[in-house]
Structures are given as C-alpha cells and as structure tokens.
Nucleic acid binder design. Structure first.
Lengths: 337, 337
DNA sequence: CTGTTAGCGCTTTCAT
DNA sequence: ATGAAAGCGCTAACAG
C-alpha cells in the first residue's frame, strides 16, 4: 500500500542509498540515476516519510510559533512575515494559539518539543523562562516575538512598547488633552505594562499639568474594549477622560464602538482615541483610529531569520532587535476645532 | 545528551517495553512500575520522540489546515473553532496559508502528506480533487471547509453561498435599490461564483425590474475593494450602481473606503453596501457594514469533528454540512430617507 | 558514482 | 506483569 524508498529503488533498478542521494544530494549522483529514480518516484507516487527522516537526522523542517492571540490581525501579519521568510528556506510554520492561556502555552511547547521542531518563535504570556531554557538545552533555539527579554537570555524581536506608550501619550498631550485614560490589561502582560509605563512617563514629564488614570480590562479584545467604553459613558460627562490610550487596536475599536453607540459620536470632539499596532482595520473604523504602528511583517521576518541563524550556530549570543513604533495620526485624535 | 526511553528504563530498573506501556497503556502495568517510571521520567526530563513513535505507529497527532487567506479574520475564526475542538482531543493544528496561490497549496499538501498528518482540512482554491483523492488513498481523510463538494466525494462544511448571495441581493432590492453591482473575484473561486449566482437569481426572479452588473476583482482583499470602489467613483453619478454586493467583507471595507474618501460619504444614501462573512470589523467600520453572517467558529468545529470521525472510520460516506447564512442589516444598507 | 548496512527511538508481538 | 527483540523508513558511513 504505502510506497517506500525500497520500492522506488527496486523499480529504478538502483540501491536505496542511491535513491536517498537523489533526494538529498543530487549532485553526487549520475544524471542517469536521477532520471530513473525520478521516473520511479512519479510512477509509484512515492512520498518521503518525514518521521523516518527525522528519526534519523534528528531535526524537522518545521518551526513552531506560539501565538498570543490568533484573532488579532497584528499577530496574523507577524505570522505572515515569518511564513514568507520560512517558505524561502523550505520550512513550514506550525502555529499554536494560546489565547493568553498558560495551559495552552505549555501544551504547545510540549508538542513542539516532542516534534523536535527546528526552533520556536513565541510571544510569551507569563514568565516561562525556565521552560524555554529547557528547550534550548535540547538544541531548540527560541526567539521571543513582540516582547523584549531584558535579561538577554533569549533573542527577541519586538517594538519598543515603552517608547510607543510615551509617544502615544505625548501625541494626546500635544493635541491639548489633559485627562488621559489608559485602557488595557491584564497587567501581567509585559506589553501592557510597558505601554502604560511609557504613557505614565510622558504625563509625569510633560510641560503641562495632566493626569493619567487606568481603566483595566481582562483581555485585549474588542469586547473588553466595548465594556471599558461603557464604563466611561456611565460617568457624568465632566468626569470622563478627554483622551483614551488603548493598549491595542482591538481594544480601541471596542472603545470606539461604545463611545459612538447611539450616534453620540464623542470621538474625537470630546474624547480623543489612540490605539496600538495599527492593524489595517483601524484605518477603516467609524472614526479612523490613530495608532502606534508596528512593522508586523518585518517583525515576523526578522524573528525567523534570527531563529534560523541560531539553528545554524547554537553558540550565538542572544540579541535584542527593537523596532521603533511610528505614530499614525488619524481623525480619532484630531484637535478640537 | 538526549534522554531516550532506554535511559528511563535503566533509571527505573525496568525494561523499555514497560516504560512504553506506562506511557501508552498504564492499566496493563503495575502501580509500582508506574510510580518508578514516572519518577525516572521526571528526574531525567524525558520527552517522547514523536518521530520514532510516528515511524512505528504510522500516524501523528496533528491535523493540517490549508487556509485560503490567513489575513481574513473569517478564516481565523474558522481556525479558532477547529483548534478548540482539536485541543479537546490532544491534537494540534498545523496551519498553512496559500494566499490563493495554487503552488503554495501544493506545497502544503505535500508537506502534510510527508508528515503523515492525521487528516487535512482545506479551503481549496482551484480544482484539486485528484490531489485530495491521493491523500485519501494514503488514509489521510480530507474535509473541505467553506466550500461544498457537489460530487460528494469529500465531506464538506460550508455556508450556502448561493442562498447567501440571493438573500443579500433580495435585501438590497427590498431597500428599494435597482441597479445592483457585484464586486468580487476571481471567478475560479467557487464561493465567488456561487454568491454571484445567488444574487443573479434574486435579481432575475424579483417582482421588480432590476439589473446586476459585475465588477471583477483579482482577489478578495481590501486593496482590491478600494480599487473597485475607485472605478465606480470615476463614473458619472448617473451611471453608478445604487447598491454594491461585495463578495466578502474585506472587499466591502475596501469599497467603503474609496466611496467615503474625501468625505463624500455616498454610503448608504447613494450607494448601499453589503458584504459577506460578517467579520467583527464590519460592524466597526466607518459606516457599519451589513453582511451575510457565517457561523465561522461552528464551521471550524464541525469540520474538525467530522474529520476525526473519518479518521476513526475511513469507510464513512462523505457528508455535506451546510449552514445557512444570516442577514445582518446595518447602516450601510439603510433605506434612503 | 553506487551498493551495503547499521542504527535513530519507539511500539508491539511473543515468551516467560 | 514484565522482558527481549524485531523492525517501522530513512540517512550516512563505508567499502567497493
């Protein structure tokens, strides 16, 4: 039923070694052999058994990518970037979604380890340095994505979230806003803390008197954004912030949705709004949303490139690649007339 | 360096067979052995070598999912649904993006076949029945996603695109629109043809005199939608359609973006607009976009469930599961005042 | 350049 | 209930 390299060899009238060489080192084989083996492969419909190959060689040609939120277009762009780079090296990417669930994070890491993936890209949720170190002991390099690794134990590719938070808040202040609110959470997500820290710094070091309150959410989702927006609406108008910095665009979209429900349209006249990531849907929103742009595609590409370099040379010193976010100002933070 | 079942056996003072049994059939092993093997596993940090296991048993615990467009939130929801179901069975999903490229479609199918995945979910682009049949010959079941298989050779889970197209057009007609335009393409995508066919049927069988023109795009993307919208804008106002049915929400978002560029805001007053899929961003658009909702999550779940059933019983007769799309009417198709 | 052959680590008989 | 041993399909080392 199942065609093995043996069958191909018999059909082509050569040895299994030759067939293997045709597959792996064609230049060490005569043209004649190549032709006959190819013919046999086509005739028999042979497909190499990757398990056997891996058992022998010890590594696979897949890279695992543990993603924080598979429904966030930002991450999909990052994956896309990694994929682009991977396909150039004949590598496929196995994507595992954790949805901010540590148990699933574990599950996928275990799976990848069993599968002896060539390397792991991960946008980590909790603190899993230990787990990742074990992977590396097993010769499986790890590159952190969308998150720095201050201790420098792992290579990381990310955007400078602190700078991004600062720039976002500075932009709001420059537009004349003074009562800022940061909407986001949970705070055990490093990116969230960093963005808030940056914003806080900007407010504290501003030339003008301004305040920053925190409106915490349970996740970075549209739904949580909607809920946060409602909480703002419930307040008497005088006590509302005059600007909202959402931890990412999904939250921003949610906030916008509540704030403009019923045609009230408070944005940007009464409340300015800025998000983070600059997903493509931010520009198409009811009120085009300002955002801190991250080079998502480039992040994915770079991460994969570094990963492959570490595969090639395990002794490589981990390096941190930091992209600078860029302000994309749109209608949602236009100054009041 | 790398810990094998042999090392565990030695450490625990049992044979490799027993270790294997502890791992796979714990009830055929004495409690004492289980305890000692467990201890040894923990101490040594043993991780099963999936390649060896697979070589022996012949199947893996992954399912491949060949996706048409990884950046379409609709597909991400479908993947999510499949993942939910998969994680319940200890199965991981390997996602491959084709971006409507037949070559990449091939590539991923080859890869999955080499990897002996447990089964394949696929939203196919071209006609690859032959290729899929070969997979099935190799005991790899295939379930089509988001696309029916009229010949009934494969199980399929999809939304009734013809009905959806019909309902969308009927809705536009009911809002008093008469000059409809279908924006979408390419037409070798089955879903696109079906949606158009449904719309055409509705127009031809309407009580009123109405027309339907086709504005073809090269892909179902926001960019292509933008381009199509521009072409509409270039016409003299009298020759523009008074309603646009976009083949999916990405295209609809693009069309909306051109039509409302420069603050002209033709939607819905002059041109009504409806999309397909009801991705979450449709509701948050500049003008909330009406759409034909597909139960994306349920589609993914169902597809995976059927796939696993076919894994268990390869003789199963293929079945077609069809969901009915639901109209979600929003501002973009509000009747003219 | 080609053929022969030894395992990679695991599961699964088959004895015991 | 446990141990011994065969062998899954492949690659790489070696001999020719």
């Amino acid at each position: 039923m199942v065609v093995s390299i043996r069958d191909v060899a018999r059909e082509a009238g050569v040895s299994v070694g030759t067939v293997s060489n045709v597959l792996n080192k064609p230049d060490e084989v005569s043209a004649d052999s190549i032709a006959r083996v190819q013919a046999a492969i086509d005739k028999l419909g042979y497909v190499r058994n990757d398990a056997a190959r891996r058992l022998r060689v010890g590594v696979s040609s897949t890279v695992g990518f543990v993603v924080l939120d598979g429904r966030n277009p930002f991450f999909n762009e990052v994956v896309r970037g990694a994929e682009d780079e991977a396909s150039r090296h004949g590598i496929a990417i196995l994507v595992g979604n954790t949805d901010e669930d540590p148990a699933r994070e574990q599950l996928y890491l275990d799976l990848f380890e069993e599968q002896q993936v060539r390397g792991v890209l991960i946008s980590p949720y909790g603190d899993i340095t230990r787990r990742l170190e074990r992977l590396r002991e097993r010769q499986i390099p790890v590159v952190l994505v969308d998150r720095m690794n201050p201790e420098g134990r792992f290579s990381a590719v990310a955007t400078d979230s602190v700078a991004g938070g600062r720039m976002a808040a500075e932009h709001l202040l420059a537009q004349g806003r003074r009562r800022l609110a940061f909407v986001g959470g949970p705070f055990d997500m490093r990116q969230v803390r960093d963005r808030l820290d940056g914003a806080r710094w900007a407010v504290e070091n501003a030339d003008v008197a301004a305040s920053l309150e925190v409106i915490a959410t349970d996740a970075l989702s549209v739904e949580e954004g909607v809920a946060a927006g409602r909480r703002i609406l419930e307040r008497p108008p005088g006590q509302r912030p005059d600007a909202v910095f959402a931890a990412n665009d999904l939250v921003a979209l949610g906030v916008l949705q509540s704030l403009s429900a019923g045609g009230s349209l408070l944005v940007p006249e009464q409340i300015a709004l800025i998000g983070f990531d600059d997903i493509s849907f931010a520009a198409a929103a009811a009120v085009p949303i300002s955002s801190m742009q991250q080079p998502a595609r480039a992040i994915g590409q770079t991460a994969l490139r570094i990963l492959l370099e570490e595969v090639g040379d395990p002794g490589l010193i981990p390096r941190q690649t930091v992209f600078r976010p860029e302000l994309v100002a749109r209608a949602s933070t236009r100054p009041r007339p």
